[in-house]
Design a protein around this nucleic acid. Structure first.
Length: 323
DNA sequence: AGCCTACCTGGGTC
DNA sequence: AGACCCAGGTAGG
C-alpha cells in the first residue's frame, strides 16, 4: 500500500528533523536511515516525514480524524506542530550575536525546532522521563499508548496507537497496572496527576495555562502530584508556548557551570536556588525565547549527536566528575 | 529556605 | 556472569 506524498515548502536550514524529532522533546518518532524517513504519531494521526530539496514531504498513514477533511487540514496540523511559521534563521542570527557559544554550536545544529506538542502527551511523557534513560522513557510512552490509547491503524505489520486521554489515565486501576508494567514510582504520579487534571477541567484547564503568563502557568503545573520545577518547565516550553521556560536538568547544569556560571561548578545536585539562577541567566542572555535557544545548546551537548566522543575535544566538555 | 534521602527499573560498564 | 552505577527529578522529611 502506498500513500500520497504532500509537500510543504521548507528551506533546508530551517528544519533539522533529527535534532528536532530525536532530541528528547518527543519520544514517539523513529528514523529509517536507509530511506531517511521519519515515522511518528501526533494529533491522533500516523505520519511519515521526509525533508529534501527545500521541501518537507509528508504522508498521512492513518488517522482517527476524518481522512477526507479538506482545506489542507493535515498540512496545517504539521505546520503548527513544527512551528514552521517561525523564521528560525532570523532567530539563530540574533542568538548568535548575543552568545559566542551559541554561534559555534549552531553551525552543526541548525534548524532545531521546539515542537508545539499536545499538552497531555507532553505532560505524561515527561513524568516518565524523570530519573530515567531515554530508551526506557520511549518504551514507557509506547506502553501508555498501547494500553490506554486508541488504535489508529496497522502499517507494515506495526499497530499504531494514539496517546491516551487524561480521562483514561485517571481510571483508578491505572496505578497498579502501570506498576506491573514496570513504571515504578511514576505509576502513582501518572494516575494521581491525571485525576487532578480531570477534576480541574481537563482540556479547558490546559487552555487556561496557555493564556497565563509563564510563571503563573508553571506554578499551576507544579500543583500536580509528581511534577516539579523541571518537568513543569518542559511542559511550559514544549506544549504551552511559553518559550522563555528553560528546563534545567543535569545537562543544562553542566553547560551553564562550564560556560557561564563557574561558581556553580562541582555541585552534587541542582538546588531550587541554582535552578532559578541558571534559568534567569539564559533568559537574560537570549531574551523571551530563551528556552528555544537553550534547546539548541542542549542538543549540541547530547552524547548521541556528538561525533567521535572518544576524542579529547569531546571529553572535557560534558564529562561529569567522578566521585 | 535549603539540604538530605528514598524511590522503581533496566541499560551500560567493568 | 553479576554487581555496581546511574539516568533529562520529585516528594517528604
Amino acid at each position: 500500500m502506498s500513500f500520497k506524498w504532500y509537500k510543504l515548502s521548507c528551506n533546508f536550514k530551517e528544519l533539522q528533523l533529527i535534532g528536532t524529532l530525536n532530541g528528547g522533546q518527543s519520544f514517539r518518532w523513529t528514523h529509517d536511515e536507509n530511506s531517511n524517513e521519519w515515522t511518528g504519531v501526533f494529533a491522533r494521526t500516523v505520519w511519515k516525514l521526509k525533508h529534501e530539496d527545500n521541501y518537507l514531504n509528508y504522508q498521512v498513514i492513518g488517522t482517527l480524524h476524518r481522512s477526507d477533511t479538506g482545506n489542507n487540514f493535515f498540512g496545517i496540523l504539521l505546520e503548527k506542530y513544527l512551528r514552521l511559521d517561525l523564521d528560525l534563521i532570523k532567530y539563530y542570527e540574533e542568538w548568535s550575536s548575543k552568545d559566542e557559544l551559541f554561534k559555534s554550536a549552531c553551525k552543526q545544529f541548525f534548524g532545531i525546532r521546539i515542537l508545539n506538542q499536545e499538552p497531555v502527551e507532553n505532560l505524561f511523557s515527561f513524568i516518565c522521563s524523570q530519573n530515567n534513560h531515554i530508551s526506557r522513557i520511549s518504551s514507557m510512552v509506547e506502553k501508555l499508548c498501547l494500553h490506554y490509547g486508541e488504535e489508529i491503524c496497522t502499517h507494515n505489520e506495526v499497530k499504531y496507537y494514539s496517546f491516551p486521554s487524561v480521562e483514561k489515565l485517571a481510571q483508578p486501576e491505572v496505578e497498579s497496572k502501570l506498576r506491573n508494567l514496570g513504571f515504578g514510582y511514576r505509576a502513582k504520579f501518572i494516575q494521581t496527576a491525571a485525576t487532578q487534571i480531570v477534576a480541574w477541567g481537563g482540556e479547558e484547564w490546559f487552555n487556561s495555562l496557555k493564556d497565563m503568563k509563564y510563571k503563573e502557568s508553571r506554578q499551576e503545573l507544579m500543583k500536580l502530584y509528581g511534577i516539579g520545577p523541571k518537568v513543569a518547565d518542559c511542559i511550559c516550553l514544549m506544549s504551552l508556548s511559553h518559550l522563555e521556560a528553560v528546563p534545567v536538568d543535569t545537562h543544562v547544569y553542566q553547560i551553564a557551570a562550564q560556560n557561564y556560571l563557574p561558581h556553580l561548578r562541582g555541585k552534587k545536585s541542582v538546588t531550587e536556588k541554582m535552578y532559578v539562577e541558571i534559568g534567569d541567566h539564559f533568559r537574560k542572555l537570549y531574551g523571551d525565547m530563551a528556552g528555544w535557544a537553550h534547546t539548541v545548546l542542549f542538543c549540541a551537548d547530547l552524547k548521541k549527536f556528538q561525533q567521535n566522543c572518544s576524542n579529547e575535544s569531546c571529553e572535557g566538555k560534558v564529562k561529569r566528575r567522578k566521585k
